[in-house]
Design a binder for these strands. Structure first.
Length: 478
RNA sequence: GCUCCCUUCGUCUAAUGGUUAGGACGCCAGGUUUUCAACCUGGAAACAGGGGUUCAAUUCCCCUAGGGAGUACCA
């Protein structure tokens, strides 16, 4: 039992890396890591009409962003077509596959009658034993697998348990299309075998395929891998995940300001658990992960929980690391270039200094960026409605009283500033909030912000005093 | 239609043949507080329904209902 575990993630490049695919990749990665094995990557591009270069790039990019690395070079299924055809030749030679000349119309008619008779729809095996000489003139045949018609095919699934299919319900699937190109069903079997895959962890939409694939494995005399079919992820309404509610590419999550670590934590808890643990480090995920702990029911995607997790990871992340994430995120945002320029070298230093107060309050990087707007705002500040309310006559009057006191502060630190403002509030018989709020409005243009003394400090003496003065002047024209 | 899978608070889930069915998110109330968060305390909230098996079923079995997947010369 010293066999090395080899898993694989095998997306078809017909779109971005969606959230379900990301979780499948994560599970494969985790299991390989947990068992000291390898995870291989295979691009299933046998559908040439729908596969695109852009999709391949998006998938690789998504995996890298999530920090899910794979072993070796990605295998492109299409490049292995010759090998796939070879395998079919041997199958034909052994009488385990045959040429089929049925037309599209005939196939449709078969399905219709089967359905009408309450049977499993599928190919009726018309060409199974029919002679070539019956073939229509010049027609190119597809090659079909001669599937067993009796008995049953049993899948011992690590997640779903023992699943039994009656062979009579499984028809003769196509191995090679009439243009000679291999189909998915064939390619998967040959590649999983050739790549030495020991564990196939994938969405349970493939469960019935597992039975057909097992039949092909058997016909070829190859050992079937161990299967683990993971339930799919549903949208908040319980229906299939659609673009509208979460079947977005992982890059969309990046653009919404989620952290890879948070998304991984969220995803691993969707369908898998380890007791009551919620916040799970990568190390713990790897040492705890096991196929047997994967649940059998579909899970719904819940943005609120993802946000909560993201907030947690944000709060506990070192400031410099957050800056790093922001720098890679911003170029992906609309107007990212402009924003990058506006922050500038100097701005990032301020940003990092302000980070302790900012990260505490944000749930996503996008939120954090928004709440940091005051750092890069130009005087005179634009005020939002709530800030304007704070700067009514009373507010402005308060600031007018406070400004000279602040000007007297020589050592511009939060402690001393706090002392100064508190003293002002006490001596003028104001509650601290009555002073802090107008001050906040003047400094940030908003009614909410990080602690006001930290804001004063990060802004610096000159800028802070200037912003306060800006608000006093219009109220006192003389 | 046919085949297969699933079903514990709104959501993600834990546990168990005998428990006040636990935790987390969200929600509500209170506390803390210069705002907003964070944080702390408390609260409401679940075993889909019906039959069995059993001294005892949320737990084991069957049925029903509901949900999902597959049913292509897509993957």
């Amino acid at each position: 039992m010293t066999e090395t575990i080899i898993t694989r993630f095998a997306p078809s490049p017909t779109g971005y890396l969606h959230i379900g695919g990301a979780r499948t990749a994560l599970f494969n990665w985790l299991y390989a890591k947990a068992m000291g094995g390898k995870m291989l990557l295979r691009i299933e591009d046998t559908d040439q009409a729908r596969s695109t270069e852009g999709a391949i790039l998006a998938i690789l990019d998504g995996l890298r962003w999530l920090d899910l690395d794979w072993d070796g070079e990605p295998v492109y299924q299409l490049s292995r077509a010759e090998r796939h055809r070879e395998v079919v030749e041997t199958l034909i030679a052994e009488g385990k596959a045959y040429r089929c000349y049925a037309t599209r119309e005939e196939l449709q008619a078969m399905r219709d009658t089967a359905r009408a008779e309450g049977r499993a729809p599928g190919y009726d095996g018309a060409w199974r034993d029919r002679d070539h000489s019956d073939a229509p003139e010049g027609a190119q045949p597809a090659i079909r697998f001669k599937a067993p018609r009796e008995g049953e095919t049993v899948i011992e699934d690590r997640v779903q348990g023992t699943v039994t299919f009656a062979n009579k319900d499984l028809d003769d699937l196509i191995l090679l299309r009439s243009d000679g190109s291999p189909t998915y069903m064939l390619s998967v079997v040959v590649d999983d075998h050739d790549m030495g895959i020991t564990h196939v962890i994938r969405g349970d939409d493939h469960l019935t395929n597992a039975a057909r694939q097992a039949q092909i494995f058997k016909a070829l005399g190859w050992e079937t891998p161990i299967y683990a079919h993971v339930p799919l992820i549903h949208g908040p309404d319980g229906a299939k995940l659609s673009k509208r509610h979460g079947a977005l590419g992982v890059e969309a999550y990046r653009e919404m300001g989620y952290l890879p670590s948070a998304l991984r934590n969220y995803l691993v808890r969707l369908g898998w658990s380890h007791g009551d643990d919620e916040i799970i480090s990568s190390e713990d995920m790897i040492s705890w992960f096991d196929l047997d702990a994967i649940g059998r029911s579909a899970a719904r995607f819940d943005f609120a929980k993802l946000e909560n997790l993201n907030g947690h990871y944000l709060r506990t992340m070192p400031d410099a690391e957050i800056v790093g994430h922001l720098k890679t995120l911003i170029p992906h945002l609309p107007d990212g270039e402009v924003l990058m320029e506006r922050i500038g070298e100097e701005g990032w230093k301020n940003f990092e200094r302000a980070m302790p107060g900012l990260k505490e309050r944000a749930k996503t990087l996008v939120e954090l960026l928004d709440s940091a707007a005051y750092l890069f705002a130009m005087r005179p500040l634009e005020l939002d409605d709530k800030a304007k309310k704070q700067l009514d006559d009373v507010g402005v009057e308060t600031l007018a009283g406070l400004l000279p006191k602040l000007k007297n502060v020589e050592t511009w630190t939060p402690e001393i500033l706090e002392y100064c403002v508190r003293e002002f509030a006490e001596t003028t018989d104001r509650k601290l909030g009555k002073v802090a709020q107008p001050l906040r409005a003047a400094l940030t243009g908003r009614a909410t912000s990080p602690g006001i003394f930290d804001v004063l400090e990060v802004l610096g003496r000159e800028e802070a005093l200037g912003r306060i003065a800006d608000q006093i002047r219009p109220a006192q024209p003389d």
